[in-house]
């Protein structure tokens, strides 16, 4: 009888936690949005059965590319595989590696936190791995795994209010209400509420990230692909510290693979008008500019995309 009473505690906790888990992972929370986006991108990539360009990175890739512009200029299918930088280098890289088929080009545009990391892990590493059915991906420690697993069943008042608003206003659960194009590009632009300030980059790429990226280059090659890197566009400071760190980062990345960036600006932008809600996310119009830059750089630096070379293969 008394033990039955204790069982009710377990039932209440497990039942409500499960409901929270379903909400977070499948209905309305930020995790569900990320999981769904990843799943859709996997499906879109699978539809392409010829050599392609895969653009990988965090939201600094997702919200910065117009794949159609690139595809039209390069004549090769382009898929935007940008997800979220918060999943960390260790999870990001294996989560895109599976998409590489022989002849593909993997264009990785990592945001700076991914490059400055000392352990390749970040806030969303553990939960993202679990959500895509690969718990522990990226070597997440057991402690973080358990913690994040527990949190996956906790929606929070804030998120529930947000979902409530979405349902009332738009009649749907989508966290960002952000449909993707056939090539995985973002279609919305979120305006910035806070004031702008120029971001500083206080250190250069970490030894850890260099090593991990070198390993990734080898893995991509083993699957018959080619890795190309690019510095992200950043609304940033042009003071010496940042310039030096970004330059050193560019030099280190160039040792691993072809690294695309404007040698004049190092891809540090000084016009905040190009940017949407964060220092990385671009406005829709700026995504076209960014894509054109990538096209030119690819044509200039990667033999496969040189205009003459591509004509010769036809």
């Amino acid at each position: 009888m008394k033990n039955k009473r204790l069982l009710t505690w377990v039932l209440v906790a497990a039942g409500i936690w499960s409901a929270g888990f379903v909400y977070n992972v499948f209905i309305g929370g930020y995790p569900s949005w990320l999981r769904e986006m990843y799943g859709r991108k996997v499906a879109l990539a699978a539809e392409i059965d010829q050599p392609k360009i895969i653009i990988a990175g965090g939201s600094g890739a997702h919200y910065t590319i117009n794949s159609e512009v690139m595809e039209a200029e390069l004549g090769v299918p382009v898929i935007n595989f940008g997800t979220n930088g918060g999943i960390g280098l260790n999870v990001l890289l294996p989560s895109v590696l599976d998409q590489v088929n022989p002849g593909d080009t993997m264009l990785l545009i990592p945001e700076y936190p991914l490059l400055l990391t000392d352990d390749g892990l970040d806030d969303l590493s553990a939960s993202f791995g679990m959500m895509i059915g690969r718990p522990g991906l990226g070597g997440v420690p057991a402690h973080d795994l358990a913690h994040n697993f527990l949190q996956l069943g906790v929606p929070s008042l804030q998120a529930l209010v947000r979902t409530g608003q979405d349902v009332v206003r738009e009649g749907r659960f989508d966290y960002y209400g952000d449909p993707l194009t056939q090539r995985g590009d973002a279609t919305i632009e979120i305006p910035r509420q806070a004031d702008w300030w120029k971001m500083r980059i206080r250190s250069q790429v970490s030894d850890y990230a260099v090593e991990r990226l070198q390993q990734f280059a080898d893995e991509v090659e083993a699957r018959g692909g080619t890795l190309v890197l690019s510095l992200p566009w950043l609304y940033g400071s042009t003071e010496e510290e940042t310039i030096n760190n970004v330059q050193a980062t560019a030099n280190a990345l160039s040792e691993i693979a072809v690294t695309l960036y404007d040698p004049e600006t190092l891809n540090i932008q000084t016009d905040s008008d190009l940017f949407a809600d964060t220092h990385y996310h671009l406005k829709i119009s700026a995504r076209v500019l960014r894509s054109q830059q990538l096209v030119e750089e690819l044509q200039a630096s990667v033999p496969a995309f040189q205009p003459t070379a591509s004509e010769a293969t036809q």
């Binding site: 209440v12 929270g20 949190q151 069943g153 906790v154 929070s156 529930l160």
Partner: peptide, 13 residues
Amino acid sequence: RALLGMTILFAAN
């Protein structure tokens, strides 16, 4: 028990 349930749902993350 309801308080525990509400904590799971509404806890600030």
